[in-house]
C-alpha cells in the first residue's frame, strides 16, 4: 500500500490525502468482501443438514423391564441403556466416593428423578473395547455392572471404574427425557 502511494502520487502532493483516503477505504471494503466470501467455503465443510439430522436419536423406553439392557447406535458408537433394579441402584449409591478411582456420585450420572435409567457410551475408557454386561449371559464383572474382556476393567452398576487399567468411568452422552418414556440422545 505504501508502495502504491509513492509511485502514483508523484507531483500531486495536494491530492495525496484524498487519494489515500479513497484508496484505503476501497481496499478495506474489498478486503472485507473477500473475508466475508471465505465464510461459505468454511461453512461448506461443516456437518451438513442430513448429517446433523442423524446426530440425535430418540429411543422409546416403554417396553423395557427392570434389569433389562439395550444397546443402541448413536453417531456410530454403542450406547448402553439399562433399566436398573432397586438393588442395583442401592448398591451404586452405597459406595463411598473414597473407594472410587474416578470419584463421581451415582446421582451425577443419572437424570434427577430418573434413577432407574442409566445411559452411557459403551466404550471402555482404557483402549476403546466394548465392555460385556449388556446381555443376560454376559459376565458383569466383580461389581455387577460391566466387564471389559480386553484388559480386565470392572465397572459397577453406575458404570464407574472399580478395578483394572481403565482410567475413567464410562462416559455419559448428552441426553434428555422428552417425555416419561422417550429419551433423546444427542
Amino acid at each position: 500500500m505504501a508502495d502504491t502511494s509513492t509511485t502514483t502520487a508523484e507531483g500531486h502532493e495536494h491530492e495525496e490525502d484524498r487519494r489515500d483516503f479513497l484508496l484505503t477505504s476501497t481496499i478495506v471494503v474489498g478486503a472485507a468482501g473477500v473475508a466475508l466470501a471465505a465464510w461459505p467455503f468454511i461453512d461448506f465443510m461443516n456437518p451438513s443438514a442430513d448429517v446433523l439430522a442423524l446426530a440425535s436419536l430418540e429411543f422409546d423406553l416403554s417396553s423395557m423391564e427392570p434389569g433389562q439392557a439395550v444397546t443402541v447406535t448413536w453417531r456410530n458408537k454403542p450406547v448402553f441403556i439399562r433399566r436398573r433394579t432397586a438393588a442395583e441402584i442401592d448398591e451404586a449409591k452405597k459406595v463411598p466416593l473414597s473407594d472410587l478411582k474416578d470419584p463421581q456420585a451415582d446421582a451425577d450420572r443419572v437424570k434427577e428423578g430418573k434413577d432407574e435409567w442409566l445411559v452411557m457410551i459403551g466404550i471402555c475408557t482404557h483402549l476403546g473395547c466394548i465392555p460385556a454386561g449388556q446381555k443376560v449371559t454376559d459376565s458383569k464383572g466383580e461389581f455387577g455392572g460391566w466387564f471389559c474382556p480386553c484388559h480386565g476393567s470392572h465397572y459397577d452398576t453406575s458404570g464407574r471404574i472399580r478395578k483394572g487399567p481403565a482410567p475413567r468411568n464410562l462416559e455419559i452422552p448428552p441426553y434428555a427425557f422428552t417425555n416419561d418414556t422417550t429419551v433423546r440422545i444427542g
Binding site: 502514483t8 508523484e10 491530492e15 487519494r19 479513497l22 476501497t26 474489498g30 468482501g33
Partner: peptide, 20 residues
C-alpha cells in the same frame, strides 16, 4: 448491493490513478 458500492469506489480509484 455490496458489489455495486465497491465497483463505484473502484471506478473512482481508477479515475484518480489515471488522472495524471
Amino acid at each position: 448491493l455490496f458489489l455495486i458500492i465497491l465497483t463505484a469506489m473502484l471506478y473512482a480509484v481508477k479515475r484518480r490513478v489515471w488522472s495524471d
